[in-house]
Amino acid sequence: MDTNGQPKTIEEAVQPLSRRTFLKGAGMAMAGMAGLVAALKPLMQLESGQITLADLLKTHYSELTPEKYVAVVKELEDRTEKDYGKRPRISDTKPIEGVEFAYALNLSKCIGCRKCAHACLAENNQSRESDDDINMSYIRVLELNKGSINVEASDHYYEPESVPQEDKYYMPVQCHQCRESPCTKACPVQATWQEPDGVVVVDYNWCIGCRYCMAACPYDARRFNFSKPKLTADQMNPNQGYLSNRVRPVGVVEKCTFCLHRTREGKYPACLEVCPVGARVFGDITDPDSEINYILKNKRVYVLKEDVGTVPRFYYFFD
């Protein structure tokens, strides 16, 4: 080659293939590989079985055959038992035909005790640092100054000696199960949708965790699992719904489902049952004799952020 003065191609001109360049190239390749391996080292901490082939080939809820559903549920129950030390029973109660749920909350009665927010946590298996940690609760209770209904002036972290305070009133906010739901519209993969009974659900096996639905929600009603849920066996509610309160994996969005695993079986939502002042009314809006229908027809009803055009199934009213 260049020793005997022959012309050469660009590769040879730039870097003739000799022992020296070969060693240099090999050294560079080794250094590159070592760097890559070092960079990926944290992946070693993944527990074995944390990501399986089945995880990469999940099936959307709407496409689960009965056999596949049984297999998926068994896997979920196994994994929950392994990770949290208690075996759940995961059910999939279907919506009742002809029923459309709606919720109304009496602002004249609510005293801001936050019992609903705590009951939500006890029912729905959200992640928590301690029993008192209601950050992931689906209900945020706002303290407002009497004389205004501007939520931007509200206090979420009020801690007075006792409630209610004389000059304040209280407004619990949770998912409004909107008829024109901006969250389901936003989801790029149809992982969240409105069920026939009006409940907006999330398929935790399908959500990719982009959080666009959270950006879309005008009620700050959605929560994201930034880490694997922290939950003790004592704290876990073993009565779980596939589309509602089953223990979520890390990296997916969750939200209030009107406790569909309870309400579709004729029970009340956990937040209603616990309310000490009877401020909450829940029922079937298609039933003309229901209490919820009476309230919507006869009370002074207020819809939060009506201007956003979400047409919620959640109402506030005054006596």
């Binding site: 990501i51 995880d55 990469l56 999940k58 959307h60 989801c187 790029p188 993969v189 149809q190 992982a191 399908w206 959500c207 990719i208 965790g209 982009c210 959080r211 994201f224 699992n225 890390v250 990296g251 997916v252 969005v253």
Partner: peptide, 18 residues
């Protein structure tokens, strides 16, 4: 993304692009 390994959920026919 919370679940980058689920990117196939965006790609028809495996996924359900909304």
């Amino acid at each position: 993304l919370g679940h980058p390994e689920r990117f196939l959920h965006m790609i028809p026919p495996f996924g359900k692009l909304n």
